[in-house]
Computed example of a mutant assay.
Amino acid sequence: MGIRGLTKLLADNAARCRSDQELKSFFGRRIAIDASMNIYQFLVAVRQGSDNLTNEAGEITSHLSGLFYRTIKLMEVGVKPCYVFDGKPPKMKSGELQKRIDAKKLAQQEAKKAEETGDVEAFEKYSRRINKVTPEVIQQCKTLLKLMGVPVIEAPCEAEAQCASMCKGGLVYATASEDMDSLTFGTTRLVRRLWSGATATNEKKGIRPMEFNLPIALEELQMDHSTFIDLCMLCGCDYMDSIKGVGPTTALNLMRKHGSIESVFKALRKEGKHVVPEVDLSEIRQLFVKPEVLSNSEINLQWTSPDEAGLIDFLVKQNSFREDTIRSGIKRMLSSRNAASQARLDTFFKKKPTAAKRKVDEDDTVSSKKGKLSHAM
């Protein structure tokens, strides 16, 4: 689910934090990709009619096709992708996970009804909601990425939290995910619709990746990250439902008025117009402030040459892909390594400090000199 209504809230109150980008603008950038989210998109998007792509054994291969070709496209424009996979979910997320399970069961029932009545449009609609990322699918994707020479990181818990930690520590430029709670976890940059621009159709429609800048968002909202976390919790997140009658705009106004979610809850209970949940706000907040993640020193990001023989065996022999198309993809990967090895032009130049930054530096220099003179005397 992410954070309910956060995209529109930022559009209305912190518009400067979002910018539409060309895919090629991420040339030379390391980007941590929320793997499960993107694999699910591949299962839904890469289809033939209402059926997923399958191999000779009837096993679904849509995720492999999407992951293989879209990753190659990223590499061709000079992006250095690394994929982060979820570990165990936090206990407090169990309620949200159950909702998703129930929604899939309902979709299965509706798809069956549509098939029986011959309603093709409804069948297609509900069939898309049935796809799920199984442990087998995850393992296949990890195998494929390793054969492609792309880094795979297995997070101890939430992938979004791991991506955010990598971004905050400077290991990667941005997090790529559709979940806005990546910002709540503290990623300094979030890229949504990363695959937009990777297809000719999206390019023609003018659909581009969206980049969100957290420091600018906090500046526009005039709040620190701790207060922003409280705002996101109040909007509704994976660990806590939103309060009926309190939408994102109301949540923002309440946070500005009361300063913390505890104070907001106290005011709402006193008012008596809303059903305020009995939850441990401190525990939920800590899931965002100190999530379970690997330290950057434990992560080794290395992009290597693709294993051609391994890819042919895995994709062609085991999963029924056409050998000529896979060999063509491998050639594209090898060619892209030259592009990826080139440094971004802006790394050769240092940005000139702003007037304010120069003033601070000058003051620090003067202060330092005064300190040395005083110590000498």
Rank of each mutant, 00 (worst) to 15 (best):
L106Y: 02
E158C: 00
R192W: 00
T199A: 11
T199F: 10
E96T: 07
A114T: 07
L171W: 05
D119L: 13
S196E: 14
V133M: 14
F185D: 06
K73W: 05
L194V: 08
D102C: 03
K168F: 09
P156V: 07
Y69E: 05
F68V: 07
L64C: 10
R192Q: 12
V120Y: 12
Y83I: 02
K91H: 10
I138T: 15
L144M: 12
P135E: 15
I153D: 03
Q162E: 00
G169D: 15
A114S: 09
K104M: 02
Q98K: 14
V137M: 10
T201A: 13
L67C: 06
A164N: 02
V191L: 15
S94N: 11
F123L: 15
S196N: 14
K73I: 04
P156H: 07
A103C: 06
S182M: 02
G78T: 09
S182H: 04
T143Q: 13
K105S: 04
I138R: 14
Q109H: 08
E110A: 04
I72R: 03
G78N: 12
I60A: 02
R189C: 14
A111Y: 01
P89L: 08
E116Y: 07
E160W: 03
T134G: 01
T187V: 14
S62K: 00
D86L: 02
E76Y: 08
R129S: 10
K104W: 08
H63L: 08
A200E: 15
G58V: 13
G186H: 03
P151Q: 12
D179A: 04
F85P: 04
K99W: 00
K146W: 03
K73L: 01
S165W: 01
N55G: 10
L74G: 02
G118Q: 14
L145F: 03
Q139N: 13
V120G: 01
M180F: 15
M92H: 08
P89N: 10
K113P: 06
A198H: 07
R100S: 11
V150F: 00
E203G: 00
E121N: 10
H63G: 00
L64G: 06
V150T: 07
K93A: 03
K142T: 05
L145C: 07
K80T: 06
A122W: 08
E178Y: 02
P135S: 15
S65H: 12
E124S: 12
E76P: 07
G66L: 08
D86H: 06
P81I: 04
A200Q: 14
G78L: 08
Q140K: 12
K88M: 08
M148V: 01
E178S: 01
K125H: 13
K104H: 05
Q162W: 02
V172Q: 03
G197A: 12
T143S: 09
Q140D: 13
E110T: 02
A174Q: 05
T134R: 03
S177D: 10
D102F: 00
V137T: 15
M148R: 04
R192H: 03
M92Q: 08
S65L: 05
K91Q: 12
T184E: 07
I60N: 05
K132M: 14
T134M: 08
P89Y: 10
S94T: 10
C167S: 02
Q109A: 10
F123E: 15
T71Y: 06
T201S: 13
M75L: 13
T187P: 14
K73R: 13
L74V: 04
E96W: 03
G197K: 05
D179N: 01
T184N: 05
V172K: 01
G149R: 06
P89S: 08
E154H: 11
S177E: 03
A103S: 06
N131D: 15
